[in-house]
């Protein structure tokens, strides 16, 4: 299995632990990731909010960088996944937009092909590699670890390969590595996303609701697949606690960090010591 890999900006910055665990897992699972040469930011929600032309162009440039590679595009961040997928679909739907973008890219020596296959890592793990193969590689099953599978929004909406409100891919991966997956009503409820910077009280309330259900269900950890979800749920827990008078202390880890642990990869290589709420106290038994 080989892919053109789009890490996205966060994975080279605040989500470096996600990147480390992806690299470690994919090496162990023989998934080859060729980082796209000179990729640029997907624009996230910011570009689309200000200027739809800018938003389309940003994602299209990165897609165009993959035109010559015969592999699908692997994406790790939910927002990047959503942007690349949506712009891919948009260019198919609006020929005039496609024409406009094609002309702009051509002046920079880039060209678009008809359609790109954009896949999130969750899909790659479940569908391309298959959970049976993952199971064969598990050397340290995470027995009795109570995990909340939190997908967030843009992994599943507006369109993705999993169900928009009742997805199961992350649940299945976590079950495969031996963890006890807890039922979770808010698995695709919004974490507040950029509102954490633009309207903190509104975002904190959304974060609080997610932490509340997770803690009531007796979670040891929350597993995520998106750097922004991770940041909001992890780094803002102390603010939630002081605002709502709660005492949540729930580690929020990337699913690849848990997969890595089950494959016997070291804590350091997985960046598991980098969360704001420390994950090691609950994970120590699995080392």
């Amino acid at each position: 299995m080989r892919y053109s890999y789009y890490p996205g900006c966060s994975l080279h910055g605040s989500a470096v632990d996600y990147q480390m665990s992806i690299q470690a897992c994919c090496n162990a699972l023989k998934i080859m990731l060729d980082e796209i040469d000179d990729w640029n930011c997907c624009g996230a929600t910011a570009a689309a909010s200000e200027d739809h032309r800018l938003a389309t162009l940003l994602a299209a440039r990165t897609l165009a960088k993959c035109s010559e590679a015969p592999y699908p595009i692997a994406v790790s961040c939910n927002a990047c996944y959503s942007r690349l997928n949506q712009v891919n679909a948009k260019m198919a739907r609006y020929p005039e937009i496609r024409e406009e973008v094609t002309a702009v890219l051509a002046e920079s020596g880039l060209m678009l092909v008809d359609d790109y296959r954009v896949k999130h890592l969750l899909e790659i793990f479940c569908e391309d590699m298959g959970l049976d193969r993952l199971k064969e590689q598990v050397s340290q099953p995470l027995i009795n670890l109570k995990v909340i599978p939190y997908y967030g929004c843009q992994m599943v909406r507006p369109r993705a390969y999993d169900h928009p409100e009742q997805p199961t891919s992350l649940d299945n991966i976590l079950t495969t590595i031996g963890a006890q997956v807890l039922p979770f009503h808010k698995k695709t409820k919004c974490c507040g996303a950029a509102l954490i910077s633009t309207n903190e009280p509104v975002a904190l309330k959304l974060v609080q609701k997610i932490l509340d259900e997770a803690s009531q269900r007796g979670a040891d950890v929350i597993a995520v697949s998106c750097p922004l979800c991770q940041m909001n749920l992890d780094a803002f827990q102390d603010k939630v606690n002081s605002l709502f008078g709660t005492a949540y202390k729930l580690p929020v880890v990337y699913f690849t960090q848990l997969v890595g642990l089950s494959l016997g990869i070291s804590v350091k290589k997985l960046g598991l010591d980098r969360g704001i709420v420390p994950a090691m106290p609950v994970l120590r038994t699995y080392l």
């Binding site: 929600t45 689309a48 843009q154 507006p158 928009p164 919004c190 996303a193 509102l195 633009t198």
Partner: peptide, 12 residues
């Protein structure tokens, strides 16, 4: 319009 977090719940 600035409170929309782009969760797409409405859209789906």
């Amino acid at each position: 319009i600035w409170l929309c977090a782009s969760c797409y719940s409405c859209s789906v």
